[in-house]
């Protein structure tokens, strides 16, 4: 891999810290009732998210899933409107209509997270089709989990992307559990190896807590897509620290303490801090990044707190392009 610019390395750590700080705050806010409903955090999966999103260009597209905050943050979306959306405020990135499960920020190419497992995969595929037809050089990436890897629409989409040579990256975030179900108990074979059946490269990133390893793998897939050579399936091995969703209390201990401890020792933010410290970043600078992320989250919460809830009158806006068609 080519040597990355210092600013890029710095930005990687900052974005991972943003996701960690944002989701830790969101978790607390759910438990206090400050955020209605629930949220699904990306805590523990920051390297996988940021390695992928930073391998994309600013104009590139992505779609995501229910573990939804990291993707737009990783793509560069400002935190204030994201936090306001989680709370249901009028200033939310989706005007309070979507909530945590349906974050979207078209300004950064985020075409939407999805509460239906696997459902947003063909959306990114369609964005890749647009890029191909319009010949605009953009690529598209679909985030999905190990659970979605068993949805039929993934394979319809991989086939279509393969046969049309779409500039597409299928990014499987394998955190090894579909809610409480261990992936290996419901998944036959290795997910990345399924790519071979569609004539496309399949890459498994075993060190998915290493942001540079993810960045490297996804960058290769992006380069292939941008060159017109077609799609790639990238499977990233990772781990979520929190429960499937905040507030969920499962009766059985489906993940044992040894497993969790082993993953905590490979914490992506800690790992990358060590890397940066050995590559010319001072402790002060690294502490400063953490302070910056926390301050940005404080500001995002303050922005949300100061924002109004949507007026009842807007409930019927944006169903259609014209308000008259809504009942």
């Amino acid at each position: 891999m080519a040597e990355l610019a210092r600013d890029t390395l710095r930005e990687m750590q900052l974005r991972m810290l943003r996701i960690r700080a944002f989701d830790e705050r969101a978790s607390k806010m759910v438990k206090r009732g400050h955020i209605p409903g629930t949220v699904h955090t990306s805590i523990g999966q920051e390297a996988q998210v940021v390695g992928a999103t930073m391998a994309l260009g600013a104009g590139d597209y992505m779609s995501g899933n229910h573990r939804s905050h990291g993707h737009p943050i990783g793509k560069g979306s400002p935190l204030g409107p994201l936090m306001a959306e989680l709370v249901g405020k009028a200033t939310g990135v989706c005007k309070g209509k979507g909530g945590s499960l349906h974050l979207a920020d078209f300004a950064v190419g985020s075409l939407g997270e999805s509460g239906i497992v696997g459902s947003s995969i063909p959306i990114a595929n369609g964005a890749a089709l647009s890029s191909k037809v319009l010949n605009n050089g953009k690529v598209a990436l679909a985030f999905f989990g190990d659970g979605a890897a068993n949805q039929g629409v993934l394979y319809e989409s991989m086939n279509m992307a393969g046969v049309w040579d779409l500039p597409m990256i299928f990014l499987c975030e394998n955190n090894q559990y579909a809610l409480s179900t261990p992936a290996h108990t419901v998944t036959s074979g290795i997910i990345s190896e399924r790519a071979a059946g569609f004539g496309m490269p399949g890459i498994r990133v075993e060190e998915g807590q290493d942001v540079l390893a993810v960045y490297d793998a996804v960058s290769k897939a992006v380069a292939r897509a941008r060159a017109g050579d077609g799609p790639t399936l990238v499977e990233v091995m990772t781990y979520r620290y929190n429960e499937h969703s905040e507030g969920l209390r499962l009766g059985t201990d489906y993940r044992n303490a040894e497993e969790r401890d082993a993953w905590l020792k490979k914490d992506p933010i800690m790992l990358f801090r060590h890397y940066l410290a050995s590559h010319g970043f001072s402790d002060d600078e690294l502490d400063g990044l953490q302070a910056t992320a926390l301050a940005e989250v404080d500001a995002a919460v303050a922005f949300s707190d100061a924002s109004p809830y949507p007026d009842l009158s807007v409930a019927f806006d944006d169903l259609y392009t014209d308000k008259e068609s809504a009942a």
């Binding site: 597209y61 779609s63 075409l111 459902s119 995969i121 063909p122 959306i123 990114a124 595929n125 369609g126 964005a127 890749a128 089709l129 647009s130 890029s131 037809v133 319009l134 605009n136 598209a140 039929g152 629409v153 319809e156 989409s157 086939n159 279509m160």
Partner: peptide, 15 residues
């Protein structure tokens, strides 16, 4: 399912 989803994604991005 793949066709309809891809058409939606394409419509959201300029086609």
């Amino acid at each position: 399912e793949g066709i309809v989803g891809a058409a939606a994604g394409a419509a959201m991005t300029g086609l």
